[in-house]
Amino acid sequence: MENVIKDLITLISNDSRPDLRILTLNNILSFSGTTDGLKLITQQDLIDKIITLLSNKERAIKKTSALILVNISAYPDGSRSLLTNADAFTKILIESILDPNSEIADSSCMILSNLTRTSEHLEEIDVRQILTVFVKTNYNTKGQNLYYLGPVLSNLSQSSVVRKQILDKSENMFMKILPFVEFKDSVVKRGGVVGAIRNCCFETEYHDWLLNADIDILPRLLLPLAGNEEFDDVENDKLPLDLQYLPSDKERESDPDIRCMLLEAITQLCTLRRNRKLIRDQNTYIILRELHKWEKDRKALLACENLVDILIRTEEEIGRDNLQDTDIPEDLVTKFEQMDRDFLHDS
């Protein structure tokens, strides 16, 4: 077995025979498509060698190597091997993403999104660099669309440190990523950014800022949840301007997971009393009411009901400022979780 790996390494190291190299790499690529194959090729020496090929002059070699690493990174053991030298490897990936002429930028984004799924090494990556590229469309000149920066961003925002960098008021990056909530070209990128925004909403001390006139996040989160339902003038006037008199061809966000995350984000923003009031005052309820009539996805339906539960209760009933101050006994948590699971499976 070890010999096979050694042979493979020798074959792909041979500078004088590019034909053999490509042939071998293509073979490894087809191996990497199956779990058994992945087990076989997840060997540190081989992986290290393939990583070096990412900077090869030959386009085909570079691309095939990148694709192999995408597959390896999707596999937990492979991901672990790739991260043995995390610093150096993520540096290579980031360089490739930041290079407007890179031909393997998309693969690099995918590898990075696979590697950042776990909550390790998140803070070692400079999210500001990712953000500057993220907000530019057509950044890459070689047709790489970098949509997978969405999931990367979402993964990185699992870390509170990263979230605070995204929310940095002086950099103003948060304002620039917000419009991608409506990004029609790619559900991957859109989902990524909504995930990141949802995660950012866990930073309670930023809620006032997020909801004020400067960022005005609520209409951004509500608009994808709104359909083409008609409201009378009184109801319309109570809504944020962006949600008033929506056209008859207005469509809701098509992806149920994204709808779910949008609802979860608004739910997080309901943590403090003053913000609950603000969210109620903007007639959020009628958007949710119409969404609830329309929604078929059980998970999104549950998320919608959870939010409505908070909004329809009066502050006297809620009886406290910060919703997160509630201590819920362990047995009740288990019970509630079971109720949610039952709800999801009961269709």
């Binding site: 400067d214 005005d216 301007l241 929506l246 056209p247």
Partner: peptide, 28 residues
């Protein structure tokens, strides 16, 4: 960064939204 310009920008964003809203309403 100055607050006056930030305020003006906010007013402009709101103005633009109002124009868009009015156009949608008129269309309806």
């Amino acid at each position: 960064f100055d607050t006056q310009t930030t305020e003006l920008r906010c007013k402009c964003v709101r103005g633009r939204k109002e124009l868009e809203r009015n156009a949608r309403k008129q269309k309806k």
